[in-house]
């Protein structure tokens, strides 16, 4: 199957309580499409981490999930401040989240590492003052 099915979501940057809605929605859609629980978990957790990052750091953004026959691609794009040092940001435990976010249980510095761990491929493009786009692939 070469055709893809695309799901697009706008991530609201102002509403922290609704963060995760796109991931929950994707989980349900993938379940309806008959993917394995493991695949669904990997996609939805990776996407949730990305959603949270965009809410914390970039005032929202967009998420596109492209479903192919053999893989699921997730593209998260924001117009936030960009990531100055991607290697540093990828280190477990490194976080620039503010205290009010940490008090909610976020900001553990596990977001990007979780996204890498849960996907088969992950690529970050980021430019300071322009934004960040993250490409992730989960093989099905």
């Amino acid at each position: 199957m070469t055709d893809k099915v695309n799901f697009h979501f706008d991530i609201d940057g102002d509403n922290f309580t609704s963060a995760g809605e796109a991931s929950v929605r994707i989980k349900k859609l993938l379940r309806e499409m008959g993917f394995s629980p493991d695949t669904i978990r990997r996609v939805s957790v990776a996407m949730y981490e990305g959603e949270i990052n965009m809410v914390i750091h970039a005032n929202g953004g967009s998420a596109d999930v492209d479903v192919y026959g053999d893989r699921i691609e997730i593209i998260l794009a924001d117009k936030g401040p960009g990531i100055p040092d991607i290697d540093l940001a990828m280190q477990e435990g490194y976080s620039t989240a503010p205290d009010n976010i940490r008090s909610l249980g976020f900001g553990a510095g596990m977001g990007l590492p979780n996204m890498k761990r849960y996907t088969d491929d992950m690529r970050i493009e980021s430019a300071l003052g322009v934004g960040t786009t993250i490409y992730m692939t989960v093989k099905t």
Binding site: A19, G20, E21, S23, Y48, L104, G105, F106
Partner: peptide
């Protein structure tokens, strides 16, 4: 088991199950 009570624990539970 957690002491976190804010609404985000519901999203986490929906995903981690």
């Amino acid at each position: 088991v957690t002491i976190m009570s804010n609404v985000n624990i519901v999203a986490v539970s929906t995903l981690a199950d």
